[in-house]
Amino acid sequence: MRPDLLPPPQDGAVPNNALPAHVYRAALTGLTPTQIEAHLAARGWTNTWRNGIYPYHHYHSTAHEVLIIARGQASVTLGGEGGPQVTVGEGDVLLLPAGTGHRNDGGSADLLVIGAYAGGRDWDVCRPGETDMEEARARIERVPGWDRDPVD
Rank of each mutant, 00 (worst) to 15 (best):
R2Y: 15
R2L: 14
P3I: 08
L5V: 13
L5F: 12
L5R: 14
L6M: 10
P9S: 06
Q10I: 12
G12F: 12
V14L: 04
V14K: 08
V14N: 00
N16P: 03
L19S: 07
L19T: 04
H22W: 15
H22C: 11
H22M: 14
A26R: 15
A26L: 07
T29V: 12
T32F: 12
T32H: 11
P33D: 05
T34N: 12
I36A: 08
H39Q: 09
A41C: 02
A42C: 01
G44V: 07
W45E: 04
T46V: 15
N47I: 01
W49F: 13
W49T: 06
I53S: 00
Y56P: 00
H58L: 02
S61P: 11
T62M: 05
T62C: 01
T62V: 07
A63P: 08
E65M: 03
L67Y: 11
L67A: 07
A74W: 12
A74N: 07
S75H: 14
T77W: 00
T77D: 06
L78G: 00
P84D: 09
P84C: 11
V86M: 00
V88S: 04
V88G: 01
G89T: 10
E90A: 08
D92N: 05
D92G: 01
D92C: 03
V93Q: 02
L94C: 02
P97G: 01
A98I: 04
T100N: 04
G101K: 05
H102C: 03
R103E: 13
D105L: 00
G106R: 06
A109Y: 11
D110E: 13
L111P: 10
L112W: 09
I114G: 01
G115N: 06
G115K: 02
A118W: 09
G119A: 12
R121A: 11
R121N: 02
W123N: 00
R127V: 15
E130S: 07
T131D: 08
E134G: 05
E135L: 12
R137K: 14
R139Q: 15
E141K: 10
R142S: 11
R142I: 01
P144S: 00
P144C: 00
